[in-house]
Design a protein around this nucleic acid. Structure first.
Lengths: 218, 218
DNA sequence: TAGATTGTTAATCGATTAACAATC
DNA sequence: TAGATTGTTAATCGATTAACAATC
């Protein structure tokens, strides 16, 4: 059991942003901050910030505010960033490669230990000092390397079959970049989705809505 | 003014997913579906689906259900996918390149018309049949090409200065992949964020929380 | 002590779920 | 007509905001 009070989903979703802002304050050598100051910077109400931060224990000090450093540490701890989950990347296409190269896994609680693809042109190449392996070797790899997470960067059509294989290997945690809804197929897994198509459609909606420009009719 | 009733933020966020599922049904030549069937597939309650879909007018037919095709068309229309907003990509690093290559912009209401970077090694190369231009030419480019959106794929440190330039050019819509919070800097812009770091931290939290494994203490 | 700011309760607001009358 | 399923209202649930007492 966590030592924290119930942290609701909206609060969890805000935690990385708090973490980011607190990190920036630390970079500027700010040692303390009040909920009101932080609310100005982050665009939340001071009340909400106090509610949020109070979920995980009285870290503030009345009449003083919050210690930036201890709040930063605490949120990092709640997020589990001090873990080191072993991750494999499935799919070394443009997106998979970008993710592998771009992310600071170590700072976020992960370690990338393997990359797999079924394209002969990619197998054998090196990304981030990791050799791209044949996807057909994923079974033997996982039998000898403890694997917590799969970073799932495969085309939608290939997704179900590959997902079945990974699921069969006992991999229960997914960072899902595919357009396929893994959580619909399995109900015993943890999935964090990055659906870029969905995000782009939301942007399209926001622009269209702000412009008040229905395309047909009016 | 839209012809739709007030569509709340949670509903909007669900629209791309509805669109995706309806598209799949169309692929399977399913012509009609009831809220109950759809609820099974999508993992929402039938009640919520009826509430959601009713926001944009009575598209269902009592005793029958919903026409998959007209619902699909309607949601695409609400999302504004029948627009063609002109987008430029700022930053042709791994992530920017992956986004440029990977996305079907045309299907999502956008057209990619230019790519910019300040790295001499990248300028002059070609991505998706578009030549990467010097970022210093973005001002002249935008003066001769109407530009609606910037896809913002620059490192955090470079973000504020480049954002100021784009904002100065009158670009008010951003698909933001940088770790920088654009909406904090400007209050007259529309931003859709893809914060991969935040997403990875959320995954870390979900895994840690499910495993109930605080790292220190207990 | 006086001032500031949190922690926490109460009030408000909004979203989801349940229920059922309308109707195809 | 009878059966099915929506549209819509009411009830519930949860999250945000406001207020203020506790306390540093």
């Amino acid at each position: 059991m966590h030592k924290y009070k119930n942290i609701s989903t909206p609060v969890i979703k805000r935690l990385p942003r708090y973490y980011r802002f607190l990190g920036e304050l630390l970079d500027k050598n700010v040692t303390r901050i009040s909920s009101r100051e932080l609310s100005g910077k982050m665009g939340l109400t001071a009340s909400q910030i106090r509610q949020d931060l109070n979920c995980f224990g009285g870290f503030g000090q009345q009449g003083y505010g919050y210690s930036v450093q201890s709040l930063y540490n605490e949120i990092g701890h709640i997020l589990g960033l001090d873990h080191s989950y072993h991750a494999i990347l499935i799919g070394a296409g443009n997106l998979g490669k970008a993710v592998a190269v771009h992310m600071s896994f170590e700072k976020r609680g992960f370690k990338l230990i393997g990359i797999f693809d079924n394209d002969p042109a990619k197998i054998g190449t090196t990304i981030r000092n990791i050799t791209v392996n044949d996807l057909d070797d994923v079974e033997s790899f996982c039998s000898s390397h403890h694997t917590d997470v799969a970073i799932f960067c495969v085309p939608k059509t290939a997704a179900p079959a590959i997902a079945d294989r990974l699921h069969g290997l006992g991999i229960k945690n997914y960072w899902n970049f595919s357009h396929y809804d893994l959580s619909v197929r399995y109900d015993d897994i943890i999935v964090e989705n990055v659906h870029l198509n969905d995000s782009l459609m939301i942007l399209c909606y926001k622009i269209s809505d702000a412009n008040d420009l229905p395309v047909e009719e009016s």
